[in-house]
Design a protein around this nucleic acid. Structure first.
Length: 675
DNA sequence: CAACGGCTAAACATCC
DNA sequence: TGGATGTTTAGCCGTT
C-alpha cells in the first residue's frame, strides 16, 4: 500500500531533490473515513453494468441486422449511411473498425468475380451481394463489440492487479474475488456474443449449420475449420435431404434458441483448452451425437422460411421446405457458388473469432500467471500525460506500447467514445505529444462521466484531465459535508486516481498550493482542525474566460434550444435536477447527443455563472458570502445550516451542470488536447 | 508579444 | 523536534 513513497522517491529526481518535502508518511491511508459511497464502484456494480451493456449490444446487433437485411440494397460501402445524426447505430460504426474489417471480408468485387464464374442471374448476384454486405456490417459490429469487451476485460484486469497491489486489506480479497467473478462473467458474455452472432448469421441464412451440430459453430468457428471439415459441412448441407429423415419432429422455428442459449458457457478454460489442441473433432462428434435428436430443425429452415442465402421462400411445413430445398438448392453451379461464398465468409469469421479467442486466452493466461508484473498499466497514456509532467514524472517515459490498450486520457471524456466509457479504439486518436495543456481552458470540475471512467482513472496511471482546482472541488463536493480536511483531500486523490499514488510530494504540494491560492477554496476552522470548502461563486468566476473560445457556438446551441443567454437560477436548478435523466438519456443515445447535451449544459452554465458572478443573480438561494460563511462556520462549525445552506444550494444548482462540465465538446474540435 | 492560467518547486511560517 | 498544514513567491509552459 504505501509503496508510493518508494516509487516516487526512485522515480522522481525532483522529488528526491527536495528531501525536506517527503511528507507523505503513512497518514494518508490511515483513515479512509469519509469514503463517499457514491464514488465507490463495487465489482458488483461493474458486473451489472457490463451485463447491461452486453444486453444492449446484443439488442443493437439484432436491430441492426434486421434493418440491414431489409434495407441493404446495392450499397457498396458500409458504415456511414445512417442519415439520422442520433442514430444509435452510428456509435457502433467506427471508421477504425471499417478499416480493419474491410480487408478481411470478401469485397463485393471479389464476390462478383467468384460468382460470375458461375452462371448466375443478376438477381441472384444482387441477393448475394446483399447478404455479403449485411455480413460485413455484422462483422464490423462484432469486431467493435469484441473490442469493447476486451477493453473491459483489460480494465478489469488492471483493476484487479492494482487492488492486489494497493489495497491488500481485508476487503480487497472480497473485491478481488468479486472481480474474478465479474471477469468470469465477462468471458461468458463474450461467448454469448459469439453465439449470438452466429445465431444472427444463421437466421440470415448466411451460416449453415447442421441440426445435429448445434455445438459445432461455437467450437469450429473459434478455432478455424480446416478445409476438410468445410467440405464435410458442404456435403452435409447438400445432402440435407438424407439427414432430414432422421430429424422429423417439430421445432423448426426455434432452432436459433439452441444457439443462443447454448450449452452454456462452459468453463472458458475448457473451451479454450479445446481450442488450443486439436480436439475439436471429437468434441464436435460429442455434441452432435448429443443433440442429434433435435428434430425437424434444419439450419436452412427457420420460421417457415427457407434460409438459403438469397432465398426467402415461405413454407407451411417442413416437408415442403425439404422439397424446395432439393429442387431449388440442389447441387448445381449456383448452389456451389453460393456455398463457396459462404465458406469464405465462414472462414473470415473463423479467423476473426480465432484471433479474439486467442487474445482472450492470452488475457486469461496473464491473469492466471498471477500478474507478475506489478505495473501492467496502460502506459501509452502515461506517455501523453508525462509530456506535461515530464519534469515530475520522468519515470513514465518508457511506456509500454499497447496499441490495443483501450485507455486513453481523452477517451473517457470524448464524445467519440461510447458513453459507457468503454473506451473505444478509435478514441486513440492523435497519439501524439500533448501540445495543449490538458486543462487550461477547462478548469471545470469533473464531469459525471468520471463516475463511468472512475475505474479507468483508479487503475490506469493516467493523469486526469482536470486541474487541481477542479479535482479539489470535486473531492470536496463529493463529501457528504461538502468539506474536507487536507488529508481527506489527499485521500480522495489517491483513492480516485492511480496517477496520484505516486509523486505525492509533487501533487500534494500542488494541492496545498491550489487551496491557498484560489479564493474559491475557503478554509474553515473546525473543531477537529480545519476543513476546506468550496465557494462556488469564486470558482465559477473563473469560468467565463474559459469558454470565450467558442462564443458563437455557445449562442448557437443555446438559441437552437430556445434558451436565452439569461437564465434564471430556478431554471438552472431545474436543469440540474434534470441533469441525471438527461445525461442518462444522452449516454444511452448517440455520442453526438451526449456531447451535445454536455456542451449545452456546460455552456449554459458558463453563461449563467457569468451572470451570477456579476451579482446579477436574483436567486434567493445564492447567498454564499465567503467571508460570512467563514465566520459563521467558525462559530457553529457543525451546524449544517451555516455551511450546508449556501453550499448545498449552490451545489444543487451546480451539482449536475458542473459535474457535467465537459471538455468534450471543445476537445472534440481539436482533440490534440490530451494526446 | 503580452496576458493569463496552470503546474511545479521551494522557502517559510505555524501548529501539533 | 519533525511532520503536517498553509502561505507565498518564482519560474516555466501553453493558450489566447
Amino acid at each position: 500500500m504505501m509503496q508510493e513513497s518508494g516509487t516516487e522517491a526512485t522515480s522522481d529526481g525532483q522529488a528526491s531533490q527536495n528531501g525536506g518535502t517527503s511528507m507523505e508518511g503513512g497518514s494518508r491511508e490511515g483513515r479512509p473515513k469519509s469514503a463517499t459511497p457514491s464514488v465507490e464502484v463495487t465489482a458488483a456494480d461493474l458486473l451489472h453494468f457490463q451485463q447491461h451493456q452486453v444486453a444492449r449490444q446484443i439488442l443493437l446487433q439484432q436491430q441492426q441486422q434486421q434493418s440491414q437485411s431489409h434495407q441493404l440494397q446495392s450499397q457498396q460501402n458500409t458504415g456511414r449511411k445512417s442519415p439520422k445524426p442520433n442514430d444509435k447505430q452510428q456509435s457502433l460504426q467506427v471508421p477504425v473498425s471499417v478499416a480493419m474489417m474491410t480487408p478481411q471480408v470478401i469485397t463485393p468485387q471479389q464476390m462478383q468475380q467468384i460468382l460470375q464464374q458461375q452462371v448466375l442471374s443478376p438477381q441472384q448476384l444482387q441477393v448475394l451481394l446483399q447478404q455479403q454486405q449485411a455480413l460485413m456490417l455484422q462483422q464490423q459490429q462484432l469486431q467493435e463489440f469484441y473490442k469493447k469487451q476486451q477493453e473491459q476485460l483489460h480494465l478489469q484486469l488492471l483493476q484487479q492487479q492494482q487492488q492486489q497491489q494497493h489495497a491488500g486489506g481485508k476487503q480487497s480479497k472480497e473485491q478481488v474475488s468479486a472481480q474474478q467473478l465479474a471477469f468470469q462473467q465477462q468471458l461468458l458474455q463474450v461467448q454469448q456474443v459469439q453465439q449470438q452472432h452466429l445465431l444472427n448469421l444463421q437466421r440470415q441464412g448466411l451460416l449453415t449449420i447442421q441440426p445435429g451440430q448445434t455445438g459445432l459453430p461455437l467450437h469450429s468457428l473459434t478455432q478455424g475449420m480446416i478445409p476438410a471439415e468445410l467440405q464435410q459441412l458442404w456435403k452435409e448441407v447438400t445432402n440435407a435431404h438424407v439427414k432430414e429423415e432422421h430429424n422429423n419432429s417439430s421445432n423448426n422455428g426455434h432452432r436459433g434458441l439452441d444457439l443462443s442459449s447454448p450449452a452454456p458457457p462452459k468453463n472458458p478454460l475448457l473451451n479454450q483448452h479445446a481450442s488450443t489442441n486439436g480436439q475439436y473433432m471429437s468434441h464436435k462428434r460429442e455434441t452432435s451425437t448429443l443433440e442429434e435428436p433435435s428434430p425437424h430443425s434444419h439450419p436452412l429452415y427457420g420460421h417457415g422460411v427457407c434460409k438459403w442465402p438469397g432465398c426467402e421462400a415461405v413454407f407451411e411445413d417442413f416437408q415442403s421446405f425439404l422439397k424446395h430445398l432439393n429442387n431449388e438448392h440442389a447441387l448445381d453451379d449456383r448452389s456451389t457458388a453460393q456455398c463457396r461464398v459462404q465458406m469464405q465468409v465462414v472462414q473470415q469469421l473463423e479467423l476473426q473469432l480465432a484471433k479474439d479467442k486467442e487474445r482472450l486466452q492470452a488475457m486469461m493466461t496473464h491473469l492466471h500467471v498471477k500478474s507478475t508484473e506489478p505495473k501492467a498499466t496502460p502506459q501509452p497514456l502515461n506517455l501523453v500525460s508525462s509530456v506535461t509532467l515530464s519534469k515530475s514524472a520522468p519515470e513514465a517515459s518508457p511506456p509500454l506500447s499497447l496499441p490495443q490498450t483501450p485507455t486513453t486520457p481523452t477517451a473517457p471524456l470524448t464524445p467519440l467514445s461510447q458513453t459507457h466509457s468503454v473506451i473505444t479504439a478509435n478514441s486513440l486518436h492523435s497519439v501524439g505529444p500533448m501540445r495543449r495543456r490538458y486543462s487550461e481552458k477547462y478548469n471545470m470540475p469533473i464531469s459525471p462521466d468520471i463516475s463511468q471512467n472512475k475505474e479507468f482513472y483508479m487503475n490506469a496511471d493516467v493523469r486526469p484531465p482536470f486541474t487541481y482546482a477542479s479535482l479539489i472541488r470535486q473531492a470536496i463536493l463529493e463529501s457528504p459535508e461538502k468539506q474536507l480536511t487536507l488529508n481527506e483531500i489527499y485521500n480522495w486523490f489517491t483513492r480516485m486516481f492511480a496517477y496520484f499514488r505516486r509523486n505525492a510530494a509533487t501533487w500534494k504540494n500542488a494541492v496545498r498550493h491550489n487551496l491557498s491560492l484560489h479564493k474559491c477554496f475557503v478554509r474553515v476552522e473546525n473543531v477537529k482542525g480545519a476543513v476546506w470548502t468550496v465557494d462556488e461563486i469564486e470558482f465559477q468566476k473563473r469560468r467565463p474566460q474559459k469558454i470565450s473560445g467558442s462564443p458563437a457556438l455557445v449562442k448557437n446551441i443555446q438559441t437552437s434550444l430556445g434558451y436565452g443567454p439569461t437564465l434564471s437560477a430556478a431554471f438552472q436548478a431545474s436543469m440540474a435536477e434534470n441533469n441525471i435523466p438527461l445525461y442518462t438519456t444522452a449516454s444511452i443515445g448517440s455520442p453526438t447527443l451526449n456531447s451535445l447535451a454536455n456542451a449545452i449544459r456546460e455552456e449554459m452554465n458558463g453563461a449563467m455563472d457569468h451572470g451570477n458572478s456579476n451579482g446579477s443573480d436574483s436567486s434567493p438561494g445564492r447567498s454564499p458570502l465567503p467571508a460570512m460563511h467563514h465566520i459563521s462556520v467558525k462559530e457553529e462549525p457543525l451546524d449544517p445550516e451555516d455551511h450546508e445552506g449556501p453550499l448545498s444550494l449552490v451545489t444543487t444548482a451546480n451539482h449536475s451542470p458542473d459535474f457535467d462540465h465537459h471538455r468534450d465538446y471543445d476537445d472534440d474540435q481539436g482533440h490534440d488536447d490530451m494526446l
